[in-house]
Write a protein that binds this DNA or RNA. Structure first.
Lengths: 366, 366
DNA sequence: TATCGTGGCACAATCGTTTGTGTAAAGTAA
DNA sequence: TTACTTTACACAAACGATTGTGCCACGATA
């Protein structure tokens, strides 16, 4: 065990200039330094100036670890998402990082890879990293929510987004999917469609369940039959969109409109319809969901629903900051639902009367 | 608006169970706890078992802040990217997070929003957060690199990716863009093209400069003229692709092939070509760059270059970990160039002879 | 028996900030 | 003048984990 005296040979690991160094140089206590830097009232203006100047001269950077350790709270927010790919999650994360950064927080990001076990591990890591709060979008395999009790029992602020734990005892930000299904279907009806099919997603996921519900709401409101034979349940891939369309077009009484709960299945439907020689939107109007990047590139361009990804991230951060600022005090959980925006494009416009898109304001439920 | 107060009154902020608590319960010192948990040799197996059991019972979570403060190094890696959107950066971040997580690190992510000042601030934040290392992709407005000297003078491990500081005194992971331009153009030549145009990007960015260079390399190799009148300099948007194509097709001697340095401009070119009644690829073969999601959706599907986003993230982490593990010891900076992958699709295939795509192995330069 | 090595644990300093409390001096009011 | 606030700063104890060093006892070796 050689003593190895701190080998600061040259520019190796330098600049650990701490408050103690500043204090020594000025001949004052660390208390004074600390309070001067945080603009505490008990430090005189003259001293404050001196400290600030010296800090700048030495390019002093506070050690956030030490600060967080002492204060018990870091300036970090934790994010747990299923993955960082596609259009949706990156955009939400973009919104989160932007909003967090504006509020003086930084984000540490974890992927669950759609795996509960990983999700659990991620929560543990974030807890032990002493983050100030956690934002979560559930993995697909999360059916049991007990690992979140641990988070809450630690008093750790927690907000769900998009894929949320249902109920009114959690903080959550979601897109109003039911409204999305509703406005989308209503739009198709307004374009003259009378037999509207629905390419639905797995119904154990609330988002797809709600989109289907909105679809039925619009049909009922218009006095159209709620025909289960027009609803195809799939996994929302492009290939399954093709398959669904094929089955629908093979029936005796094919639809004149399709509301797909996802853009990829809408794309598949569009391709199959064109392949079979149907004109879109004249013979068949199509609307998708999610505003994927490719929806402006298809021919015709695809009517869809924008999910307001960035707003979701921002809203989630706002809510989380509220919980954080409530500190220990009782905070009544809240659910925020963002209003989706209908983007009317070529695949659904038969006449030019209606181009209304739903207002894009956030409303709060409950 | 039901009141439904579910306010957590009692079990508010609990479980700050520390090593001290465990030590007290077992009647041993904190040293023993700490060493038992980190499997230190000086702790007997019996005691180790007891400690581990108690830790599990109380669901003990080490405080990473304290640990990092004491050890001087956290288990966090910092990432600075221009933004988290589109296809490229999210995919790279995905690769980074995955690789980092596998190595026991977590990532804290910052956006520079293409702004040097913000980039500088991000570096400061990461430094004061005591991260173990930093991964950077430069902002578009970064022309002066002095803020990175501060990082290095602190002895902080640093690796650039994609948008890098050029030179052999930095660690960097890039795509071999020149190779990409070369294989792409060579492919077009192999398909019978003899007048190949190039939609080039801003030449002050190394990626576009290199793609153009590869393009010329292939032409020269094939004995084709290097005709500057076939090179259009634009900003790589879809609209500018349309514009470029329009100009090219208006000339006396229009091209029979186009290598676009980006998929969006390739898309614009494709659309304009089709609009003017050209058959793609028969009359005009087109190849893009980046493998954007939409390239498999266009009609015809678009030949392009895959940028190996995830591999880039992983390679960057690997390199960074090497630097970290070198600790203070001298480490010779290294540049890693990933070999791009040519994805041959409908927009460029005139006959079926050639479908070779470049091997996808990473090679190291210098 | 004397010596030595070593396994097994405790002491206490340390990382860099924060903050409750103490305490002078200076200012204000009576 | 006395008494009471402010103002301006210092002391020192935290926060929770890590680690060099010291100590004791035990078995092994000579």
């Amino acid at each position: 065990m050689a003593p190895r005296k701190k080998q600061v040979s040259d520019s190796n690991n330098s600049n650990p200039v701490s408050m103690a160094d500043l204090a020594r140089e000025l001949g004052v206590s660390m208390t004074t330094i600390s309070r001067a830097l945080s603009d505490h009232h008990s430090i005189g203006p003259a001293m404050k100036q001196k400290v600030l100047k010296l800090a700048k001269k030495y390019n002093y950077q506070p050690n956030r670890l030490a600060s967080a350790l002492r204060k018990g709270k870091s300036q970090l927010l934790g994010i747990v998402v299923p993955y960082i790919e596609g259009r949706f999650f990156p955009s939400v994360v973009h919104g989160i990082e932007t909003a967090a950064s504006k509020a003086g927080y930084n984000v540490i990001i974890c992927q669950s890879n759609e795996d509960v076990a990983q999700e659990r591990r991620n929560l543990d890591i974030l807890l032990s990293a002493q983050v100030a709060g956690i934002l979560v979008s559930l993995s697909r395999t999360t059916l049991d929510y007990r690992h979140f009790d641990k988070v809450r029992s630690r008093g750790m602020p927690l907000v769900f987004f998009d894929r949320v734990v249902e109920g009114d005892n959690v903080n959550a930000v979601i897109l109003d999917d039911q409204e999305g299904g509703y406005v989308s279907t209503r739009h198709l009806i307004s374009q003259g469609c009378r037999r509207i099919a629905h390419l639905a997603g797995p119904q154990h996921l609330n988002i797809y369940k709600n989109r289907r519900q909105g679809y039925f709401d619009a049909l009922r409101e218009a006095g159209l039959p709620e025909d289960e034979s027009l609803v195809m349940y799939f996994d929302m891939t492009q290939q399954e969109g093709v398959e669904g369309m094929r089955q629908l077009l093979a029936s005796d009484n094919p639809p004149d409109g399709v509301f797909a709960a996802g853009d990829y299945s809408a794309l598949g439907a569009l391709q199959e319809a064109k392949r079979q020689g149907l004109r879109v939107p004249e013979d068949l109007a199509i609307a998708g969901f999610s505003n994927e990047a490719f929806t402006v590139i298809t021919e015709p361009t695809l009517t869809t629903i924008d999910q307001r990804c960035e707003e979701m991230g921002q809203a989630a951060v706002r809510l989380l900051l509220e919980v954080i600022e409530a500190d220990g005090r009782p905070f009544t959980p809240r659910q925020v639902a963002l209003r989706p925006e209908l983007l009317v494009r070529e695949s659904s416009v038969r006449h030019l009367e209606e181009h209304a898109s739903s207002a894009s304001v956030a409303t709060e439920k409950a």
